[in-house]
Design a protein around this nucleic acid. Structure first.
Lengths: 152, 152
DNA sequence: TTAGATGCAAATAGTTTGCATTTGT
DNA sequence: ACAAATGCAAACTATTTGCATCTAA
């Protein structure tokens, strides 16, 4: 009974219990390869385990976000956020502003810049946020034909 | 009367009219150095121009996002998105998480990284967002005495 | 056993929409 | 002049909360 998925393992390692609600949310996301809105997740969870309530789905999404297991991002049309599964580790993102897909990379090489800025500005720097945004290959391909002018 | 700010200029260039509502939202964001929630923007706009309605603020935020003048991002707690002004020219921010002061700097030196990532990920990178967070000199000084323990 | 989590449903944000009126160009 | 935008307020979502109950460890 030790065959916990890596993500569930991380949940436990962080000191949280492994519950039906949490397992269901994670399963829903993993089945879909991440990239679902909260509404889609609620639906998927309802299928996986009808006993799980909406509130718990949101509580879980919040928890998973705090643990950096998933990440909410905005795509086009500032409606609802899309939750993306993160592979894990510490890293930065490249976000496709069309489909919301998230790519990751390590090695931002900002330590040096950080040190320099700290010296120049007098600000004691505690962290940073770095995100690149653009259009991924798939979206570039699929929108090339019709996006002559994308009249919203 | 051609002294339009760069961002307003981009609005017009994209074929949109320059209205009070739009100017106010942009002004609110620029005054604050970006990095405001929709609620904060609504408040700030109410001060700048009380005649502007909430709906227009949201419509404008949506428009500015589509034009990549701003970008909604999630930082902590999946509550509401924070709208960040995207570097129009090419400057970035250092934000003091205590007093909220915003420092700017040029030369992020990310062009090279950007090119490398573009090649590796296949994402056509349109821009990036870089922000450092920390405590500015003033706050470090004033909080040194009392911040023995900062119970989050 | 027992604190951590949950489900429910009600309470709250947060955002969008319809439409008559105003406004930028 | 005239289509584009707006303001208003109501309609809608989406998300959060309180609390008794349940359950993972």
């Amino acid at each position: 009974m030790t065959s916990l998925t890596p993500r569930l393992q991380r949940l436990r390692d962080a000191g949280y219990r492994i519950t039906h609600a949490r397992a269901a949310v994670l399963k829903a996301l993993e089945q879909a390869g991440g990239h679902l809105t909260s509404a889609q997740i609620v639906d998927a969870v309802a299928v996986i385990d009808p006993a799980v309530g909406r509130a718990s789905v949101f509580r879980t999404l919040d928890l998973l976000s705090r643990l950096s297991l998933i990440r909410p991002t905005y795509t086009e049309g500032s409606g609802a956020p899309v939750f993306v599964l993160l592979p894990g580790g510490h890293h930065h993102h490249i976000i496709c502003t069309h489909c919301g897909r998230v790519f990751e990379f390590e090695n931002c090489g900002l330590d040096e810049l950080s040190a320099r800025l700290e010296a120049n500005s007098g600000v004691h720097i505690a962290g940073h946020l770095l995100e690149f945004y653009g259009t991924c290959a798939d979206c570039t391909a699929s929108s090339a034909a019709s996006s002559r002018e994308a009249r919203a």
